[in-house]
């Protein structure tokens, strides 16, 4: 057996705030393509488009009903984009594309435009908002209390992330509905760390989460961190 060292995916443990308008590690945006047709897909890292593709939504039953796109793996070429390459995805009618970020600290946004006969119609521009029918998922790794806000609906809720008392499964997401008024379907949701809370948008939404009260283990450990003080040399001396 050859020894392989482990490299920690550090952003997983440092990300404390999440925003559907700036997709980061641990967030997933799920867009559903309800109609058959062709769509332009743009993925931006910051302001720069790093990936462009055509999404063909078809009726064929053998086409995929879900395509996962790890945005962290896009634009890894030296130029920082998949420039000149034309990617193409084929999806079944009613299928979804999941845009997520597996690593890194970059922020991404997704634009999807329907290529119509007359003019392009923007169905999704995540930097602005998430359309009704889409889903936004956040996996919360740091335990504590998170405040969730839908800025479009002026709604708030609390997501509590607890330390598990015993062996548990992380692959059990909790669904939170956002109603047509933009309100959250519940005022409080509880999950265990590493699990995901999924917001299903009944109306256009922009969702933000922020760790407002870290769990004791984080506070305690942070207090344990040694302090280093670096002083500039005194020129007078």
């Amino acid at each position: 057996m050859t020894t392989q060292k482990a490299v920690l995916n550090r952003p997983v443990f440092t990300q404390r705030a999440f925003d559907s308008s700036a997709l980061t590690v641990l967030t997933t945006l799920i867009h559903r393509f309800a109609e058959v047709g062709a769509y332009d897909l743009f993925i931006r890292r910051g302001e720069r488009v790093v990936h462009r593709a055509t999404v063909n939504v078809v009726r064929e039953a053998n086409a995929a009903h879900q395509i996962d796109v790890d945005m962290a793996s896009l634009g890894t070429e030296p130029k920082g984009c998949d420039c000149g390459k034309h990617a193409e995805y084929t999806l079944r009618e009613g299928g979804v594309m999941c845009f997520f970020v597996s690593r890194g600290t970059s922020r991404y946004s997704v634009v999807i435009e329907q290529i119509g006969a007359k003019e392009k119609k923007t169905l999704l521009d995540s930097a602005k908002s998430i359309p009704a029918g889409d889903l936004f998922a956040v996996t919360l790794v740091l335990p504590g209390a998170y405040r969730a806000v839908n800025t479009e609906g002026n709604a708030k809720m609390l997501v509590e992330v607890s330390m598990p008392a015993e062996r548990y499964r992380v692959d059990q997401p909790t669904l939170v509905e956002i109603g047509r008024t933009g309100r959250f379907g519940t005022r409080r949701a509880s999950i265990q760390l590493g699990q995901t809370v999924v917001f299903r948008c009944g109306a256009e939404a922009r969702i933000q989460l922020e760790l407002v009260k870290p769990h004791d283990i984080i506070q305690k450990r942070e207090q344990e961190k040694p302090r280093f003080t670096v002083r500039k040399p005194d020129k007078n001396k």
Binding site: V7, V101, P173, V198
Partner: peptide, 25 residues
């Protein structure tokens, strides 16, 4: 972390969330 599937109302198929791993490799 993460992962798992969301039950969607019929006829929409379930959506399964991607996982994010703690270590690379």
């Amino acid at each position: 972390v993460g992962g798992g599937c969301i039950n969607m109302p019929w006829p929409i198929p379930d959506i399964c969330l991607p996982r994010v791993c703690v270590f690379s490799g």
